[in-house]
């Protein structure tokens, strides 16, 4: 499933579209510690986190996440939004907590 389809099905707010129509989701990944995410996040991850800063973008880009989903309506500051758009990093926002957001994605991937 593409990141775009995911956002559409689960009504995620699109903060930065990036290459959402091309990025295919392989797995859900949840983590707020960036060093852990750096070493553990699989390529193609739908990464659910409440850590919304510019370093989240760097880690997502380096680990080739399909998209970042900021749970609990976590905001990304303006500078980071600009950077995400410049670098084609896909960022969505979910009103639900981390677990619920990840659970909904997991169910959808296996439908």
């Amino acid at each position: 499933m593409t990141a775009e389809k995911l956002a559409e099905k689960l009504n995620f707010k699109i903060i930065s579209s990036g290459n959402m129509n091309e990025n295919t989701i392989s797995k859900v990944f949840c983590c707020d510690l960036l060093s852990l995410a750096m070493s553990k996040s699989p390529a193609g991850a739908a990464w659910v986190t409440v850590m919304g800063n510019i370093n989240t973008l760097a880690v997502a880009s380096l680990t080739e996440s399909a998209c970042i989903i900021l749970a609990e309506n976590t905001e990304l500051d303006e500078q980071s939004v600009q950077k995400a758009r410049q670098q084609n990093i896909t960022v969505f926002q979910s009103e639900f907590p981390v677990f619920e957001t990840a659970f909904m994605i997991e169910k959808l991937i296996h439908e």
């Binding site: 510690l33 960036l34 060093s35 852990l36 995410a37 750096m38 070493s39 850590m51 800063n53 370093n55």
Partner: peptide, 16 residues
Amino acid sequence: SLGFGAGMGLPNMKKY
């Protein structure tokens, strides 16, 4: 508070 400082920097560097 930025998501670093978990004490994994040098260990990750060695591991990878």
